[in-house]
Amino acid sequence: MPPATPAADNTRAALTMVASMAFFAVEDLFLKRSAEALPPGQVLALTGAAGACVFWALAAGQRQPILSMEALRGMPLARTLSEAVAAVLYILALALAPLTMTSALLQASPLVVVAGAALFLGETVGWRRWASILVGFAGVLVILEPWGAGFDPTGLLTVACVLVLAVRDLTTRVMPARIGTFQVATWAYLGLVPAGVALMAGMGQGFVPPTPGQWAGLGGALVSGLFGYYAVVAAMRLGEVSVVAPFRYTRLVFAMAIAMVFLSERPAGTTLLGAGIVVGSGLYAFARARKRASPVA
């Protein structure tokens, strides 16, 4: 069999990325239904504990140490804390806000990361990409409609989540290369357990024994999330980042379809318009980044 060409690798990587976004959209559905039926903090703690067990086993198979003081200082600690805070905000957003709006706002995350990389990591971002970032932020305002009667303050939970996710991604970029992927994933999931317990305490909620159906929903969230995580890592390793990364936006398509079919949501026109602006801005930013990288390559 002849070796795969770069174009073929990019095609496989793009399809894998699309599959990962579909898994994450399914995970969001399971998490939303679980967080509506059970205390959101409990959902977070249970999924964190289960995910940590899975990634701990994977890390052990690759001889990546988990019980290390390195996890409790510097960038690894900052990443774990930002992951935990983002997860708290996101599970609350899933429980309280429409899935269509939450998914649309989440698409602004790559733009915030680009802005953060320019401001805090010294990466070069030209005026065109800065313009696309500002247009994307305008799309966020269109989704939120803070000037109208349709303003839903629960959308601010996702906006805050996007900002904290940018911190997580930026700290990931500057972490030492010797720290393995499964180590990072295990620490992130372990951090969700105390975060979930703290959220339950803050909301004055106790443990609610899940029904068999609710256990199945939590299991569905765990399995779909793990498949999504594996697929996104495989996609980024298989193809060129500039080619594969824009396919992250397919998550919005899957999420809106799922919300309409299973949750009977009907996204407002402003949500669709704002989502289109955000996605278009992000795709333009990716295109500009790829164009700038081509002469260097």
Rank of each mutant, 00 (worst) to 15 (best):
A115T: 10
T5S: 15
M101W: 03
A52W: 02
P146C: 07
A231S: 12
L263Q: 09
M17D: 04
I258S: 01
V193H: 03
M256I: 15
V159T: 09
A131W: 12
L218C: 07
V193C: 05
V223L: 15
A118N: 07
F254N: 11
G116K: 10
A25I: 01
G220T: 00
L226C: 04
A166D: 03
L157C: 04
L111A: 02
L46T: 12
A50Q: 02
L92W: 04
G217R: 07
T5A: 13
V243P: 02
V135K: 03
P210C: 11
T124N: 05
A4Q: 12
F247H: 06
G74K: 11
L165K: 07
A216G: 06
A257F: 08
L92P: 01
A216V: 11
V279N: 04
P153V: 15
I66D: 09
V142W: 09
L157D: 05
S68T: 15
S132L: 14
G150N: 09
L156Y: 09
C161G: 01
L81V: 09
A59Q: 11
S132V: 13
I91L: 02
A7K: 15
V18D: 01
L134H: 01
G48R: 06
I143G: 06
F262V: 13
F286C: 11
F286I: 14
A84K: 06
G139C: 08
Y249T: 05
V88S: 12
T270Q: 13
G155H: 08
T250C: 08
P40Y: 01
P6C: 12
L272A: 07
A35H: 04
D152S: 10
A49T: 00
V296F: 06
P2R: 15
I91Y: 00
K32M: 05
A188T: 12
G61C: 09
V135N: 01
V164Y: 03
E145D: 12
E265V: 12
A37D: 10
M1L: 13
L252I: 06
L106I: 14
M1N: 05
D152Q: 14
A149C: 03
E240D: 13
R129W: 11
L226D: 02
G220D: 02
L38H: 12
R79Q: 00
V88H: 02
P110R: 14
A49H: 00
